[in-house]
C-alpha cells in the first residue's frame, strides 16, 4: 500500500516563522548598513559597537532567525527532491546538526567579545 498522507499541521507555523525571521534579518541588515554609513570601521570600531547589550541581543536574534529560516528552507528542499525516507531523515539530521553548530559557534563568538 502506498497511501499519501498529509495534514501534518505545521504548515502555517513554519510559513509564519519564515516571514517573521525574514523581517528580523531585514531589520538587522538595515542596522548593519546604517552602522557602515555612520562610519563604523576597523576591529576596534566594530568591537565597540558589539560591546553594547542591545547590539549583542539583536545579533543573537539575527543568528537564531537565520538558522531557523535556513532550517525550514533547506528542509523543504530535501522534502521536494529526496523521496526515500531514510536518506531524507539523515539529511534532515545533518542539516539540523550543522545549523545548531553554526548557531553555537556564532554565539560563542559574540559572547567572547
Amino acid at each position: 500500500m502506498n497511501r499519501i498522507v498529509t495534514g501534518a499541521h505545521y504548515g502555517l507555523k513554519d510559513w509564519l516563522v519564515q516571514r517573521i525571521t525574514a523581517i528580523v534579518m531585514a531589520l538587522y541588515s538595515l542596522f548593519i548598513g546604517a552602522a557602515l554609513l555612520a562610519g563604523v570601521s576597523g576591529y576596534d570600531g566594530w568591537r565597540a559597537l558589539m560591546a553594547q547589550g542591545f547590539v549583542r541581543f539583536f545579533t543573537f536574534l539575527f543568528i537564531v532567525s537565520l538558522c531557523w529560516h535556513a532550517w525550514i528552507g533547506v528542509r523543504d528542499i530535501w522534502m521536494d527532491y529526496v523521496k526515500p525516507a531514510g536518506i531524507r531523515l539523515a539529511l534532515h539530521s545533518l542539516t539540523a546538526v550543522a545549523l545548531v553548530g553554526y548557531a553555537g559557534w556564532a554565539i560563542q563568538v559574540i559572547w567572547r567579545l
Partner: peptide
C-alpha cells in the same frame, strides 16, 4: 482551513 494546514497542501 484544517484540510489545507500542512507543509505541502497549501504552503
Amino acid at each position: 482551513l484544517d484540510n489545507l494546514e500542512d507543509p505541502y497542501r497549501l504552503f
